[in-house]
Computed example of a mutant assay.
Amino acid sequence: MKRIYLSLLAVFFAATTFAQIETPVKWSYAAKRISPTEAVILVKATIDAGWHIYSQNVKEGGPVATSFTFPPSKDYVLVGKPMEPKPVTKYEDAFKMNVSYFENSAIFQQRIKLKKAGATTVKGKVEYMTCNDRKCLPPDEVEFTVSLSAK
């Protein structure tokens, strides 16, 4: 009897754990050389219908802005800040302010200048917050690695 109880408890726990995980944003990454010494890192968010992520430019008191961090590298330096497409800007009652966000998809671009010729790997991390018209999920962080081949 104890085995049956423990088995049922394990199944219930597993089912409720899987049922609670929501991942309305999928991330993909690529790199494109634009010259022998420069490249662009492309970070794409594919967002499920009804959900959105926020711009990098959110006023204080609003939701968690999307942000990128890149650790220092001996192979490249960042050129400027990550660029983003034009966001939708609307008033959100949850934050009592106008906020800028992306629906469906957004491609962020970070230019880099290479310090040496050859292949390199770019590592980074994106932090973001996802909301829909009923709720917001806790902020999340995703680490990524992009390979840039030699040209």
Rank of each mutant, 00 (worst) to 15 (best):
V122A: 02
F108E: 00
A150K: 11
F68R: 05
V126Y: 02
L148Y: 05
I112R: 00
M97D: 11
T66W: 01
E143Q: 14
K125D: 04
T121Q: 06
F68T: 01
A30P: 00
Y91R: 03
D93N: 15
T46M: 13
K86S: 15
L78N: 08
A10Q: 01
A119H: 04
F12Y: 12
V79H: 04
A10V: 08
K90Q: 13
V40I: 15
E92A: 13
E141T: 07
Y29E: 06
G124E: 04
S67I: 04
V25Y: 04
Y101H: 05
F102I: 01
P36Y: 06
E103T: 12
A19Y: 11
K113W: 04
K116Q: 11
P139T: 03
N57H: 12
M97A: 07
T130N: 07
N104S: 15
S147W: 08
F68V: 01
K32M: 13
E22D: 13
E103F: 01
A19T: 07
I112Y: 06
Y91V: 06
K90C: 07
S149Y: 15
S35I: 06
V79P: 04
D93F: 10
Y5M: 14
L78K: 06
E84R: 02
E127D: 09
K59Y: 09
G80H: 03
V58D: 11
G118H: 02
L114G: 06
W51L: 09
N104G: 10
T46V: 14
G118I: 04
K74V: 14
L8H: 08
I107W: 04
K123S: 11
P24H: 10
L114T: 02
K151H: 13
V11S: 15
C136I: 00
V99R: 01
I107P: 05
G62S: 07
A106I: 01
K115V: 09
C136P: 05
G61S: 09
I21E: 13
Y76Q: 07
E143K: 08
A31L: 04
A45L: 03
V142H: 03
T16G: 15
Y29R: 03
K86W: 05
V142R: 03
G124Q: 00
